[in-house]
């Protein structure tokens, strides 16, 4: 059973929420609805997390369900595995993208493989929340886009919301999922606001969404680059270019149906991400779409991404990240007969 099979709770009065507050509300509602949901991680308790996503939850649910962990990422994830095996639904936080690497072994070798290893006898209904990506004036270790490490690992579901409504709905669904979910939260969007009536329910988290329709080019984005894609589409109008914007929402699995239909319609596509290009997630998107839609394409699928370097310092960040100008310039390199 997924969240989408259940009848929605009556909607509450609309409130303006940031993405961080929407995520907070999602965890709070999930914990109120299901006593097996537990939360732990570094400073998620009284402090409420670095980005305040868990603010107030310690006060409401107490030490037994919301706890601070020592700085031990491998231990945090490993503990979540054991708890999930016994029927709890742990939601754990890796404080920053690069802080998840000490837990890499537990995630890749155990979280991802347990169900397969036991031929379905053991499920791991756990969520690993990871604030990721840059554009917040951070530096290396605090601005990484590590999605390709996770999407390259069979057994993991990898999703990333780009707006407050999806943040709420997708996190609720991730917590309800019986399989482990890597939940990537774009840091630069934590303060994005929207008016929401909770418990808002958007499309299922394994589907992509067409956020803006267009006829000439499909821009494929997720997480932090969705905003960039929408801004690019707006700028392109003046150049007489009609851009369709797709928010992938789910990186793994990949919604072939929605994205494929768009690419077949426009015949041109570009993938955006902050992560480095070489061996990045965009390579998989381009290859997959090309394999399935080659004879519908008018031009090679482009990847417009961060450069192949470690994340730069704050003052160089704007030259590293894909910007509308850089995206439009890249689209201009196609032959447009």
């Amino acid at each position: 059973m997924t969240l989408h099979d259940t009848a929605p709770t009556p909607l509450r009065a609309p409130v303006t929420l940031t993405m961080a507050a929407a995520l907070n509300a999602a965890i709070q509602d999930a914990m109120r609805d299901d006593p097996t949901v537990v939360l732990f991680g570094e400073d998620v308790g009284p402090l409420g997390g670095v980005f305040r996503v868990t603010d107030g939850l310690y006060a409401e649910f107490g030490e037994s369900r919301v706890s601070d962990s020592p700085l031990a990422e491998s231990g945090i994830v490993g503990t979540a595995i054991g708890m999930a095996m016994y029927g709890l639904r742990p939601v754990v936080e890796m404080q920053f993208d690069a802080f998840s690497y000490p837990a890499f072994e537990q995630i890749v070798s155990h979280v991802a493989k347990m169900r397969n290893r036991t031929r379905g006898r053991v499920q791991l209904p756990l969520v690993i929340r990871i604030p990721y990506a840059g554009d917040i004036g951070g530096v290396e270790h605090h601005s990484d886009s590590s999605e390709a490490y996770w999407t390259a690992t069979p057994g993991l579901t990898v999703v990333s919301p780009s707006n407050p409504a999806d943040a709420y709905s997708m996190l609720r669904e991730a917590i309800t999922s019986d399989d482990p979910v890597i939940f990537l939260e774009p840091k630069s969007r934590y303060w994005a606001k929207a008016e929401l009536s909770l418990p808002v329910r958007t499309a299922p988290m394994n589907t992509a969404a067409v956020l803006r329709e267009g006829t000439d080019v499909t821009l494929i984005a997720y997480g932090p680059t969705v905003k960039t894609a929408l801004a690019t589409a707006e700028l392109a109008v003046a150049e007489g270019l009609s851009i369709e914007v797709i928010d992938l929402r789910s990186l793994s699995p990949f919604d072939d149906e929605t994205v494929g239909a768009s690419v077949r319609k426009t015949s041109r596509a570009a993938v955006l991400h902050e992560a480095a290009q070489f061996g990045g997630y965009g390579a998989e998107v381009a290859a997959r779409l090309t394999e399935r839609n080659f004879f519908h394409l008018a031009a090679p699928i482009l990847r417009i991404t961060g450069f192949d370097i470690p994340y730069p310092s704050p003052k160089l960040e704007e030259y590293f990240l894909p910007t509308p100008d850089r995206i439009l310039a890249a689209l201009g390199t196609w032959e447009w007969n």
Binding site: F278, F307, D325, A329
Partner: peptide, 15 residues
């Protein structure tokens, strides 16, 4: 060391 040598992926100040 950029592993992509195409012009569109060179860092530069955009006009």
């Amino acid at each position: 060391t950029d592993r992509d040598d195409t012009e569109r992926n060179r860092p530069k100040r955009m006009p």
